[in-house]
């Protein structure tokens, strides 16, 4: 079976700053890969390379067997299959929750408005925000905004989802509601790559844990095993700090 995501020796620099130094990563269908690592280790950059928001200098990014940077590939088409959720929500502030979720199906997939609305209302219901459909982002709590953002990404019916520290900007009491939506999503069989510091989520939902440091994958393994028994010293140090 072809992998959902395959990074092959991916190098990424910002000017002289070498951020990703040869990343190899394969994500199979229905896997929930949790990525941890210190600040600046290149976690966000790696996610952004997966959906081509950042160009890479060397290596290959394969999405469901297609070379993201291939000469015949349209990266916009590939991005439609990869949902992404950001730390800072990035909802469109001039549109209400429903319109946020409907926009891409209408403008990108050219779905009829009625169909897009049905999809959007259904998704808002799934993230527990059916009654907030007509509300502007600025009137929603952070947790609610983030759930709308997840619904917005799901509206494109993506094959996989990328989450970049989606609970880090939330007040502690709002973290659980977002994690529970992500947990449901994982249970429904979504392929997910999740950058997070929520070790509980990693342990309970993750199928694989990856520790990154200095732009390389230092260690990977089963989350339940790796959290209690990390092999690398750097992993041990990091885990002792976050646990």
């Amino acid at each position: 079976m072809v992998a959902m995501i395959e990074l092959i020796d991916v190098h990424k620099s910002f000017g002289h700053l070498h951020v990703l130094k040869g990343i190899n990563l394969t994500v199979q269908k229905k896997e929930v890969v949790v990525i941890i690592g210190p600040s600046g280790s290149g976690k966000s950059t790696m996610l952004r390379c997966i959906n081509g928001l950042e160009p890479i200098q060397k290596g290959k990014v394969m999405i469901e067997g297609e070379d993201l940077h291939g000469p015949k590939t349209d990266p916009n088409k590939i991005r439609q299959r990869i949902g992404m959720v950001f730390q800072s929500f990035n909802l469109f502030p001039h549109k209400n929750a429903l319109q946020n979720v409907m926009m891409a199906p209408i403008k990108v997939q050219k779905k009829p408005k009625a169909e897009a609305e049905e999809i959007a209302r259904d998704l808002l219901g799934r993230v527990g925000l059916a009654e907030k459909a007509e509300v502007l982002p600025e009137e929603l709590s952070g947790g609610q905004q983030q759930r709308v953002a997840i619904a917005r990404a799901l509206a494109m019916k993506p094959d996989m989802m990328l989450f970049d520290e989606v609970t880090s900007a939330l007040d502690p009491e709002l973290v659980a509601e977002v994690l529970s939506v992500m947990r449901n999503l994982a249970e429904s069989g979504m392929t997910m790559v999740v950058v997070t510091h929520e070790m509980g989520f990693a342990r309970e939902v993750g199928t694989r844990l990856i520790f990154m440091d200095g732009g390389v994958v230092v260690e990977e393994g089963d989350p339940r095993e790796m959290i209690v028994n990390p092999k690398e010293v750097r992993t041990q140090k990091f885990l002792s700090m976050v646990l």
């Binding site: 952004r48 959906n51 928001l53 916009n76 088409k77 991005r79 439609q80 990869i82 949902g83 992404m84 950001f86 990035n90 909802l91 469109f92 926009m103 891409a104 403008k107 990108v108 997939q109 953002a149 917005r152 990404a153 494109m156």
Partner: peptide
């Protein structure tokens, strides 16, 4: 905002 839009395939 741009990134969110682009990540949706726009």
């Amino acid at each position: 905002q741009t990134e969110a839009a682009r990540s949706l395939g726009m």
